[in-house]
Nucleic acid binder design. Sequence first.
DNA 1: TGTACATCAGTGAACGCGCGTTCACTGATGTAC
DNA 2: TGTACATCAGTGAACGCGCGTTCACTGATGTAC
Lengths: 208, 208
Amino acid sequence: MTRKNQYHHGDLKNALIQAGIEILSREGVNGLSLRKVARRAGVSHAAPYAHFADKQELVAAISTEGYKEIYERVYGAVQRHQGEPLRQLVEAAWAYVEFALNDPDHFKITLSGAVEKEKDYPALVEITQKSFNLVVELVAAAQRAGILRAGPPDLMAVSVWGLVHGFTLLILEDQISHTVLDRYKLKEMLIFSLDQITTVDIDPQAFI
Amino acid sequence: MTRKNQYHHGDLKNALIQAGIEILSREGVNGLSLRKVARRAGVSHAAPYAHFADKQELVAAISTEGYKEIYERVYGAVQRHQGEPLRQLVEAAWAYVEFALNDPDHFKITLSGAVEKEKDYPALVEITQKSFNLVVELVAAAQRAGILRAGPPDLMAVSVWGLVHGFTLLILEDQISHTVLDRYKLKEMLIFSLDQITTVDIDPQAFI
DNA sequence: TGTACATCAGTGAACGCGCGTTCACTGATGTAC
DNA sequence: TGTACATCAGTGAACGCGCGTTCACTGATGTAC
């Protein structure tokens, strides 16, 4: 948004990615087009082709950015509660949900597999693996602390991620009846779900 | 596909819904357009407007149909294992996953909240509520049998549905690393997840 | 320091496409008498 | 049973739109001498 009057923008590539994220939040996944992204970045609609081979490549960059934000939020929650594995689990899960609530369509495009040949985008592959490994470490620590049952940590990671991811999407896609939603806070509901998977009882009051 | 040569089709409305489902399976969510649906049903591209006010209404009908299929599959699993609450839980969950695997894009459009004002489509509202109630009854039975912990059945239903839904989507959207996928069968992975949420140990061999 | 020139990152016109939707129409069907 | 006519469910042309992508171009920048 700054430095608009220059012929040479300086950092158009990132500006386009940010513009894309803004369009997602304003107009949703279906509103995202290369031409709108260019317009929002204050540049002609052909300019993006200097930085991205095609639309797919821009979407891959936006997904990569989304995964990075998710990683950082979750990692931040883990760091903030070192030595408290139950709290790490709860707050990491909540960080994931919060990102999705803040930026639903960025979340959706990031996790929608919209990038068809993910293999072609090494930065995306890298951050997805890094993120999965973070979850594996998190659940492994919880297992060591006796908070999750024993079992292959990668399978356990899929279970925990699946639980949190499914909860997030049911909320985002408005699939949960409002007669339920009206009676509980989202974080309460998330904790109730996590409570089912942990071996210890979670006191919701400690987290809300 | 039958009775093509008649000016009056007889049951074009349902034929259009089926054509839509076929296009979803062939070309995915982004390939779905009113014009393609009409073409596939062997009818001019304006014909659908005799049966649907707009594209959104067709999508709502396709979603309704998707929910009905899911309901029937899950209900079938429940019926098939009366008196065995653990088996009911596992097979109902697996029926959900199987529908998604068979018809990924029909599943996605059905659960994507693509229908913006769901309220305007009473048939859709009805089947979503009916489906949720089925899950509530299922988990309540499991709670009575001591297989799931106590707690409000509607919250428990959200937890179980979320777990299964998240697992399903992570698979569909290809978010699970192939180093994990290569080592386990999907049903094993699902059972591992369900095993975390139940109070009893599940023997995967009994189900695979 | 000044100039020539290659390179880079933009512009704007143009392309062809498929889309959702509207409209005047027409052929088929069913009903009243 | 036969006919007139209203209703229904289609047709096909036309609309305006936004899209992704290409292309010849040009203005700005940086480097060699």
